[in-house]
Design a protein around this nucleic acid. Structure first.
Lengths: 152, 152
DNA sequence: ATAAAGTCTACCGGATATATAAAGTTAAGG
DNA sequence: CCTTAACTTTATATATCCGGTAGACTTTAT
């Protein structure tokens, strides 16, 4: 299960992309039904990771720092929820050896979850915010969503 | 990430399948490097779900209640960790509506995670304990692991 | 009867999830 | 320049889960 926080974060990005312009936290929170103060934390975190940009003061707000088709689901999930891999010893961003488990190469269950991780990444790293837009305007260039759709 | 508990549970089942016979909790715990008392809870839970069988008293122990190629990874994970679906509104065993999210059909992120869930199930529901055995004796009938392997 | 196994119930410390609160900073507009 | 409406930062709260331990109890073979 992904966290509520990640769900909120993704929905906020989709809202920003749909708007195509800057939006205030309060406006996003209201539209997407997200607790306002919680959303603040989430957007802050995404800002620190260079996904969004903010302007302070009156007339402030958040806006995307990259085009929607460059922001992948995987990227966002890794920021908010951490590794996608189902085992620490399969994570690319936070590899840790399993403390039990004698040898990694012969671990019976590792092989299985490696396949799960691979197929999850296949979807999450190829699907972008642009693939979730309301108006399917720019979502249909060959690079992104179409590929992910074609593969299954 | 799957829980430590699920990892232990799967490894215990593989150990039982490799042995092909009854094993005491303490023996499994020692072989697989699992805290003994914790393993008790895990095996009990699997017993309640009809995966294993136990004998009490001296000469007691645990043994599999089904052939290893009938026990899927998905089955075990659902018992120990709960739903495989990344969103509650995508779970088959524990469906819950997302409390936020106005309409389920148009939820932008739901479609994406539906594909993740599908591909995870594709692996986990087709892979069995038999696919993880040491000796690849009976692991090669067409029904189970071979199919999962062929698909990617 | 006793030793050795599983069974049951309870508990515990730390981490994580989901927020909420309060006290700043910054910038626009009058 | 001062007010206001935004974002920022830090702290706090609370509930739940995770990983594990403890101890008393029941069952069975010898």
């Amino acid at each position: 299960m992904i966290s509520q926080k990640a769900k909120y974060g993704l929905r906020a990005l989709v809202a920003l992309a749909n708007e195509g312009d800057s939006l205030m936290i309060g406006e996003i929170a209201a539209r997407e039904n997200i607790p306002r103060k919680f959303l603040e934390q989430i957007l802050l975190e995404m800002k620190r990771h260079g996904i969004v940009h903010s302007r302070r003061g009156k007339l402030g707000g958040y806006s995307l720092l990259m085009p929607p088709d460059k922001i992948t689901y995987g990227q966002v999930l890794r920021i908010i929820d951490g590794p996608i891999a189902p085992l620490p010893c399969l994570s690319r961003i936070a590899y840790r050896r399993c403390p039990d488990c004698k040898t990694e190469e012969t671990c019976e269950i590792r092989r299985v979850f490696a396949r799960v991780a691979e197929s999850a990444r296949e979807v999450l790293d190829r699907t972008t915010i642009a693939d979730s837009l309301n108006s399917p305007l720019l979502a249909n260039e060959p690079g992104s969503g179409a590929c992910a759709k074609a593969h299954r």
